[in-house]
Amino acid sequence: MTQTDFTKLVLPFKDKVYRLAKRLLVSREEAEDATQEILMKLWNNSQKIKEYRNIEAFAMTMTKNFCLDRLKSKQAQNLKIVHSNYEENNTSLEKQVEARDSVDWVSKIIEELPEQQKIILQLRDIEEYDFDEIAKVVDMNPTAIRVALSRARKTIREKLTKTHRYGIQ
């Protein structure tokens, strides 16, 4: 497989890999590093790649696993700062300012979702995968995926209406 063949093969989903990585790792640089890592891994195994029927799903699964591993090792390294006396109801001034740009606000809300829901929401609402494809990536049955997706969507909207009530409107 030549470089051009590989680029052609990877082109349709490299942005999706990057977006999923960014969704999970949050920081732009880390997501770029992760994407590069994934693409390099694919390239090094480019002989075996042809055997996979769905390369995109395979790449997305790789990305998911890679990022979750990253997060795990990060958590092990760093101390977490826990706000035990933090109250969500009193939207601070800072939050209100952030809420002005309500589209960005959505990404902040998604950041707070559990990893599994983040991945499913990303794949469904942004990348528009069907449930079978998502099932391959996250290794869950479609019903469970639906439930997680519904939960994620409801949480986002709940938090959004909260900010709307306190913030913009």
Partner: peptide, 29 residues
Amino acid sequence: VPHLESYRVMFQYFSTTKQEDLYTKDVPL
């Protein structure tokens, strides 16, 4: 309609991220 504003924010976010968040770096192969 105003009472659907929260949905509007969500769906706009979904479609903008798909269009704007692109991986542009070159991978050294």
